[in-house]
Design a protein around this nucleic acid. Structure first.
Lengths: 336, 336
DNA sequence: CTGTTAGCGCTTTCAA
DNA sequence: TTGAAAGCGCTAACAG
């Protein structure tokens, strides 16, 4: 911020009125003379006066800033969520502070601490894959900063959260594969720390069981979301005496890496082996052989919803109760 | 922010000292008794006191927030730049306010106004494709908020800026294509409002001329960066009596859309027609037929550099002079 | 309709 | 080594 920026005091002095009057004129307070109001506005215009928000924040005890903590901005899923958040908060005068955790718990904790210090009015977080506790979230609540979780949520946490019906998504995906004649279906799942991993597994198992297909434990792999691990686990699957015909992947990035492994081993995608994955990122459209189906999770809408809940909690801290919103996912088929 | 959060006053009262003392203890001021300091720190710990940053900001006349305005977070180029910015500002205690302009000038202007109102200490911007003036940037400078431009810069603007040597990049790309035997090379360029568009054109023309290849005006198209326009312009190129053998695209997204058009028309990528494009986004690695070469522009490093310049300008507003930093690009070849 | 006054939570002279 | 007091820029009773 600046050095010699005009303040209300100067405006008041120049106009020979009190700062109160200026303040009121600026807020279009009813009890103010039309003349005065116009004069003030004119001078404000002329001097290029911009109210000092820090002062207002100090008074009003809010900053109109909210924080967002998520694993990676570079994942389109999250940047779309940010857009959803931005679009619902900006019209209300809020700005968004973004911090990336890079799936690292310590970074996440530090990010939240830093956001509290910066005085945000609320925080939206999608937890890191490493995160196993929600104590760092309590820290925020303790300072009166509401926290809303989205996508990567901790359901036993006391915070409001919004996520997609992953279990159903996984279930439908497996049903789809079965309906198309595959029965040897593997699951390239995420880290076991994530709730979302468990749900994918549940959906997977449920669908298989309902169709009386035995669950093969060797078909279930957990990857840490790093490329190398995906490659390793995919190779393990392909090395099986009876390798899978289809793979449900944790998300598109996992699917892409796995597909590359397959290609390198001479397999033809969607012929020798086919994929279904979560996310439905836009660049899949550019692949010659995209996953045969994707589970669209509507990250933009999730961001919107999370932001709405947060806005409500900020506006009315007392009446706001814990909410749990499920965004319906949708299976997008790409049969060739 | 909260209601009943502990303040320095309470700490002082509980300890029977003055707020001054607490303040000094917290800052580890030299002139303070060891005993007192320890007592204060203990109580702070116990009460979970967090300094009210708004108050500090008001006093210190800075917020330790910086704003970043860019077209789209969903473009990996920009999210990588954000990471670069975050990584250089966070260690210094700064947080990043991100706003997307969506290539819309009005949104960009509004974003900057909003950031000034929110009291950021500085702003980094990559201008919208629509933007043709830098008056909205002057607005910030007028309020003592330094502005640094990156990538999509306005070079005649009075602000510091960092960008890549696009002309050289385009030049090398064309040389590479010529060296590999192509001479009918088209340019799917960006909007004419962008400096970057002009530079790509210059590099393109220069390389052709140096190799005594006549510049064919029908091979030069300007797209507005929306998918539909890319499709239209690509079709125009392919409909030419002598269609190009190679295309230099404004960036990967343009290349991808253009490549799809080619595929739909039965052309084989990198055989019937090949592509070179700016950006080198990571997902190109997943394509069966990626652009035959990409011009890596190092967005992370650009973000870092822009942030460094901004940090310096904030730290020392008087001595800081306008800087213009060029990040060398690099041609990544993917000959099959 | 307008001004006076107090105060948000903190830092920082100036005195003791 | 500590404290009292002023003040950052603004808002909001309360009083005219």
């Amino acid at each position: 911020m600046a050095s010699n920026v005009p303040t209300m005091k100067e405006i008041a002095k120049r106009l020979g009125v009190s700062v109160t009057t200026v303040s009121r004129a600026l807020q279009n307070h009813p009890r103010i003379g039309l003349r005065t109001r116009e004069q003030v506005h004119a001078l404000v215009q002329q001097m290029g006066y911009v109210p000092n928000s820090t002062a207002i924040y100090l008074k009003k005890k809010c900053t109109f800033n909210i924080g967002v903590v998520l694993p990676f901005l570079t994942e389109q899923f999250f940047s779309l969520a940010i857009s959803g958040i931005e679009d619902t908060t900006t019209p209300l005068g809020y700005s968004v502070l973004v911090v990336q955790s890079r799936n690292n718990f310590e970074r996440e904790r530090a990010a939240i601490t830093s956001l509290i210090k910066h005085g945000v009015d609320g925080i939206i977080v999608s937890v890191a894959s490493e995160t196993q506790t929600y104590l760092h979230l309590d820290e925020a609540q303790k300072h009166g900063v509401p926290v809303v979780l989205f996508d990567r949520v901790i359901k036993r946490a006391p915070n409001s959260c919004v996520y997609s019906d992953i279990m159903v998504g996984a279930y439908e995906a497996i049903e789809f594969l079965i309906a198309n004649g595959w029965s040897r279906i593997a699951l390239l799942n995420g880290p076991n720390t994530l709730q979302a991993t468990e749900e994918r597994l549940n959906g997977y198992v449920k669908a298989l069981q309902e169709h009386r297909i035995p669950v093969n434990i060797h078909y279930i792999k957990s990857v840490n979301l790093l490329r190398e691990d995906t490659i390793r686990k995919t190779n393990e699957l392909l090395n099986l005496p009876e390798p899978p015909q289809a793979i449900l992947a944790f998300h598109d990035y996992v699917a892409l890496d796995a597909m590359q492994v397959c290609k390198e081993r001479g397999l033809h995608i969607n012929k020798d082996i086919c994929f279904v994955s979560f996310s439905n990122l836009s660049f899949c459209a550019y692949l010659d052989h995209p996953p045969i189906a994707s589970i669209e999770q509507f990250p933009y809408e999730m961001g919107q919803k999370a932001a709405q809940i947060l806005m409500a909690a900020i506006a009315d801290p007392d009446t706001a109760t814990r909410q749990e919103v499920v965004i319906k996912s949708k299976l997008i088929q790409r049969l060739e």
